[in-house]
Amino acid sequence: MANKILDIYELKREFTMGSETVRALKGVSFEVEQGEFVTIMGKSGSGKTTLLNILGCLDKPSEGKFLLDGVSIGDLSRNELARIRNQKIGFVFQSYNLLARTSALENVELPLLYNKAIGARERHERAVQSLEAVKLADRLGHLPNQLSGGQQQRVAIARALVNQPVMILADEATGNLDTRTSYEIMALMQELNKQGKTIVFVTHEPDIAAFSSRTITLKDGRVIKDVKNTNIASAAAALAALPAQDDY
């Protein structure tokens, strides 16, 4: 039986805004097993972002059960949450969030700097390996402003991979990219997934969801649809099907 990476049961999250209580999540339950490529979809206001924050251990649920790789997150302190984020989760953001004026290599090394078990040599080696995995081995010394959007996002993915997380958590990771580059990123994601990485991908674009193995749809703080995708589209094939790039 495959390892359960996420085990969520009746998850609730409420915010108090002045005198009003906003119930962003009203009882969400699902499980994600190792090696799955899950997309979470939903309109804005569906509780997608709140769920993402909780999955990323940036926020804690008000109620309900959340086990990440067998660890119950609800009971952890701020510092323990930071350690979980450091060692079990790889974040990929919509706006890349690379440190400016910092080389690709140093950006990728960043998570390892917060892990005291890893020395300088291993840090460097693993950062180089990660960048090789996203096919940026020739851009180690480049600064973010010398890279295209797609390349920057690949650096961000390398940064998410470098700490060998149990799950890659992507938040609208293709939101800032054109179709071609989006497909490139999705092809990379699919490749990583084939290598066994668990990926949770938050998006609102259905065509992106088509590349995943499972789609969970949220609405008004509840799961309204949770379907296995039997017919997974290949991003590499979609990329090849795009018309040749215009030269201008």
Binding site: R78, A82, N86, N97, Y114
Partner: peptide, 16 residues
């Protein structure tokens, strides 16, 4: 601020 947020999201504790 954003940099601090990023550092925290990839595992920096408050003390770091």
């Amino acid at each position: 601020t954003k940099e601090i947020g990023l550092r925290m999201s990839i595992g920096a504790r408050g003390i770091d």
